[in-house]
Design a protein around this nucleic acid. Structure first.
Length: 430
RNA sequence: GGAGAGAUGGCUGAGUGGUCGAAAGCGCUCCCCUGCUAAGGGAGUAUAGGAGCUAAUCUUAUCGAGGGUUCGAAUCCCUCUCUCUCCGCCA
């Protein structure tokens, strides 16, 4: 959600900002509609409050009269009762107006930061820098699917039979490597980057998803799997669970920044991505990710964001994986975010860089929805929330397999992971 | 799943229909006193909204959430959620 005060003061600025995202939504119309509803709402609300004030006064008076001498209060009671009816009527309208206004503004995205590059699609994302050396092979680099086949350790068939497409069974040393990656990442963030280790619910309710901005959505493009009978949804990312730890809280300045990390499963329906990345385990319904979340002072969110990106980058550096840092353009920045940087890891098998982390500053968007503030004078302020992957574990496995292969298809194990694998240095073809 | 008990401010904890936004204690802030330390005294101390000169001040809502009864609800009634204890089940 964005600041309603800003909306009142400078609706044009809000509309212009929304327009940068290039969404097929007439924000000018929506903002005007909202402003209209808001105006009515405030008027009626004021009326209702005035009526309540006068009823409260009458009630107080009645109380006093009954307390002392036993005076007849019948007339006053009748009067108050009538006011009560008026309040009732007005209240109905107020509730309806409020719902109508919310139905509009809860769909709106966050305001983009001024420095977000303009653009129409992900083609317009801006590569900020490239890190690490691309591996040079005197053979054709295999992708992870082929490597999985050579080693017989990635079983897409069984997964497809027991579940469906976009699932995989990972076996033996590959599974071990996968686990090592997750452990390594979480350890780094907890031991060296100062995050609190969290183990979080993988199922969360509608309210939690609304706080973080996953709900409500423009269209009905379901992003996640749900058990609607229980109002529980499988999390698309641990960001939801981690951010909601701060929901409704009022922080003192010393408590910030609150840095949280979790290694979790994530679940996505991938409903809108038919035919995209169907080969291999690049895009799965279920995958693991180490997620970083920071609840920060609103004045320091961008410097904290830079550090969070560095935390994620550190993982790729330690794994010696080449990557590039990409700032998302206006069209590609997510709903809740004001600014986002992706880390894209080099995948020799795909001959391209692919997203392995996405780090966003959501400013006060989530904080406003979930009422998370910072104790401050003269007025308490909303905190800012940051989130980033540090990093996607499944894709990290792909990256290691493809970047650490030799001519035969053996996989070297990155040095930092060897302690997690009983010192194993190589996965040999059977 | 069954039975019972509970949910009050930063914390502990009073409060069963009227000046209760809420006693008391703790904590915190400011001031005073005491040559340090320890102790003592006084004042203040919830959140969100609206009105107002971004003032003083006034006002509305909030005692787990949502409804209801009433002139008036923390207090009575209903529904839900959560927590605790016991039983069952389970990892």
């Amino acid at each position: 959600m964005i600041d309603p005060a800003l909306l009142r003061e400078d609706p044009d600025r809000v509309v212009a900002n929304f327009a940068q995202r290039g969404l097929a939504v007439d924000f000018r119309k929506q903002v005007a509609e909202f402003a209209d509803l808001d105006k009515q709402l405030r008027k009626l609300n004021k009326q209702e409050e005035d009526l309540r004030a006068s009823r409260n006064q009458l009630s107080r008076q009645i109380g006093e009269m009954m307390h002392g001498s036993k005076q007849d209060t019948g007339q006053l009671q009748q009067h108050a009762s009538k006011i009560g009816e008026q309040i009732e009527n007005l209240h109905q309208d107020v509730v309806e107006l409020k719902a109508a206004a919310q139905a509009i503004c809860y769909h709106w995205p966050n305001l983009l930061h001024d420095e977000v590059p303009p653009g129409k699609s992900e083609q317009d994302n801006k590569v900020l820098r490239k890190e690490g050396k691309l591996p040079k092979y005197d053979f054709d680099a295999r992708d992870h699917v082929e490597l999985g086949k050579i080693h017989s350790l990635l079983d897409f068939d069984s997964a497809g039979v027991m579940a469906k497409a976009r699932f995989v069974v990972i076996m033996d040393t590959f599974a071990r490597l996968h686990r090592a990656l997750g452990q390594f990442m979480l350890d780094m963030h907890v031991k060296q980057h100062g995050y609190h280790e969290c183990n979080v619910p993988l199922l969360v309710n509608t309210k939690a998803l609304t706080h973080t901005g996953q709900l409500p959505k423009f269209a009905s493009d379901d992003e996640f799997f749900s058990a609607k009978s229980d109002d529980l949804h499988l999390i698309p990312t641990a960001e939801v669970s981690l951010v909601n730890i701060a929901a409704g809280r009022l922080f003192s300045e010393e408590e910030l920044p609150l840095k949280l990390a979790a290694h979790s499963l994530c679940f996505r329906r991938e409903a809108g991505s038919y035919g995209k990345d169907t080969r291999g385990m690049l895009r799965q319904h279920q995958f693991e990710k180490v997620e970083l979340v920071q609840i920060v002072h609103p004045d320091h969110s961008y410097s904290a964001w830079e550090k969070l990106i560095a935390d994620a980058e550190r993982i790729l550096q330690k794994l010696r994986l080449p990557y590039q840092v990409v700032e998302l353009c206006a069209a590609d920045v997510g709903h809740a975010a004001a600014r986002t940087v992706d880390l894209e890891v080099w995948l020799p098998g795909q001959n391209s860089y692919r997203e392995i982390s996405s780090c966003s500053n959501d400013t006060d968007y989530q904080a406003r929805r979930m009422k998370t503030s910072l104790r401050s004078k003269p007025k308490n302020r909303l905190v800012h929330t940051l989130n980033g992957s540090g990093v996607a574990v499944g894709r990290a496995l792909i990256a290691v397999l493809e970047n650490y292969q030799d001519a035969q298809g053996n996989i070297a194990i990155p040095e930092v992971l060897q302690p997690y694998m009983d010192g194993l240095t190589r996965i040999e073809i059977p």
